[in-house]
């Protein structure tokens, strides 16, 4: 297994290289360059723009720029963000934990909520509850993330404060990772504050995928509970809930685990929008700005991080698959 994983990681290297090369040339093919952030600034004169261009090596042939990027990158040097004038490693260190926290929470929510609902639906197939959940899932699934985020804010962070008697528990902050008074709170206060801030964005990010996980779980579960071994379990006198939780669920999870790897890129691209809406200082917000400002080194580094996260996510899915299904063995 370990050697398999190592091999997979090794295979990922040319893949990452290919992706980044593609990103490099696409970015450079887009109109404008990093100096363009000064172009429409009345306070910056032409000479400054030209000087900056040559300082950043933007007047060099593309092949030269590519080569010097590749050499630096391969030696682990992400370089300097042109727009922020900060080392990219420092920027990533600021942002990655926030994105991991948000995406990770969303991922957990997706699978917890999605699987729970899917199981309930499968067990109560064709009941009113099943139909309501199916409809709800479809509705939520078809909502654009951005719009959903705004709606959540309008209802739970805006309306909720206007309406007297709205339950305090259902009032949420609209933005950021912590409140203003965060530093003054005790340990549990801080933890609570962070969770409070995490709920809406994680929900906005995860609920659409949770709806689809619920659908997959439902059909996978329905498939599984028709299997002979479920009948065997019941013939042994295993109580109904235990049949579902022990015998059916683990089998029904097999196709769902594959989704984990599929959802990760989806989640990361979704986090771009969600982070914007909820002013969540993560990678998404950084990558958008980097692209808009043509901050080439930062675009390359953030693309790299996203690609690595996707690769790792897929590996994780593979590992988990092997953990859940003893028939899978990686050589």
């Amino acid at each position: 297994m370990t050697s398999y994983l190592l091999r997979r990681l090794l295979y990922a290297v040319p893949l990452l290289w290919g992706i980044l090369t593609l990103v490099f040339f696409i970015m450079h093919a887009a109109p404008g360059d990093p100096s363009a952030m000064y172009l429409l600034n009345p306070n910056v004169s032409q000479e400054v723009v030209e000087q900056i261009r040559s300082n950043w090596g933007l007047d060099e042939p593309l092949a030269v720029q590519y080569w010097s990027w590749l050499v630096n990158f391969a030696s682990g040097d992400f370089g300097l963000s042109l727009a922020q004038q900060r080392p990219i490693s420092a920027i990533l260190a600021d942002r990655i934990p926030n994105t991991l926290l948000l995406s990770g929470t969303a991922l957990v929510l997706i699978f917890l909520i999605g699987i729970a609902l899917g199981v309930i639906q499968a067990v109560r197939q064709y009941s009113t509850l099943d139909n309501v959940l199916t409809f709800g899932a479809l509705l939520i699934y078809s909502m654009p993330t951005f719009w959903l985020g705004l709606m959540l804010i309008l209802i739970f962070a805006h309306l909720s404060y206007q309406i007297d008697g709205w339950p305090e528990l259902l009032r949420f902050p609209a933005s950021g990772t912590t409140s203003i008074q965060y530093d003054m709170l005790g340990f549990f206060g801080k933890l609570g504050d962070r969770i409070h801030h995490l709920i809406l964005p994680a929900f906005a990010l995860g609920v659409g995928s949770a709806a689809s996980v619920a659908r997959y779980t439902r059909s996978s579960m329905l498939e599984v509970i028709r299997q002979d071994y479920i009948r065997t379990a019941r013939a042994k006198g295993v109580p109904g809930h235990r049949v579902i939780m022990k015998h059916a669920l683990r089998n029904a999870m097999l196709p769902i685990i594959t989704l984990l790897g599929l959802y990760l890129p989806f989640l990361l691209s979704g986090s771009v929008l969600v982070e914007y809406v909820f002013a969540w200082p993560g990678m998404g917000d950084t990558i958008i700005k980097a692209i808009l400002q043509r901050d080439y080194p930062l675009v390359m580094a953030t693309s790299f991080v996203f690609a690595v996260m996707v690769v790792i996510g897929n590996l994780l899915a593979d590992v988990l698959y092997a953990v859940v299904d003893p028939r899978i063995r990686y050589e």
């Binding site: 299997q227 002979d228 071994y229 009948r231 065997t232 013939a235 042994k236 683990r250 089998n251 299904d325």
Partner: peptide, 15 residues
């Protein structure tokens, strides 16, 4: 107790 025709599918593959 009861046993079935297909031992292959009647045993739970993940336990």
């Amino acid at each position: 107790s009861m046993i079935f025709q297909e031992p292959m599918t009647s045993l739970n593959p993940v336990w």
